[in-house]
Amino acid sequence: MTASLIVFLARLLTGVRARWSGELPGSRQSVFFANHTSNLDFVLLWASMPPALRAKTRPVAAADYWRNGGIRQRLADDVFRAVLIERHRVTKATNPLAPMLGALADGDSLIIFPEGTRNPGGEPGEFKPGLFHIARACPSVDFVPVFIENLNRVLPKGEILPVPVLCSVHFGAPLPRIADETKAAFLARAREALLALRPL
């Protein structure tokens, strides 16, 4: 119910269309990694998915923002089923990788933003190493690049009220796996695959 309302509002604001350049994702478990330009990113990516895929895909989000005990937390827990991770006070006990690997072990797919922080306009920044560690820990999971277009115009950093602008979500083909790839090479390749989805 709440989920349908959120999907409806996302469509009203952005008319979002998903464009799949790889095969339509069906049964295979995936990590969708996307560029991060707006707080609405994962809502839009999540809303653009076919309902069956949406039901088993969980966004990874910052605990400090979403675990506030109020409506945000209820949305994160009950609607998006977000995997909340610690961004700042990272210790062994709050290792952000653990909840992500846990969700993957349960058979869910993930949405992550490997830049870590929003990057308004311009080029996506360098990727944080987490993506590489997950890829190494889960060799059978697909890593699918997703480019979100125009959303920074809907809700730029620092604004509260959104403006309607048409957005597209471009899903690429899963990254091919290369044995014994270094961390730097993998992250660079993942970033290239994401940039390649940018419409001209």
């Binding site: 008319g15 308004p120 125009n150 115009r153 730029p156 604004e159 009220l161 959104p162 403006v163 309607p164 602008v165 048409l166």
Partner: peptide, 27 residues
């Protein structure tokens, strides 16, 4: 009109400084 304006603004390269004016225009 709302949908047509949304299409028109999408094609127009607006900047961050237009955000509040656009909010007024649409809503």
């Amino acid at each position: 009109s709302f949908l047509a304006l949304r299409e028109f603004i999408t094609l127009t390269p607006t900047r961050r400084g237009d955000h509040r004016a656009l909010f007024w225009a649409f809503f």
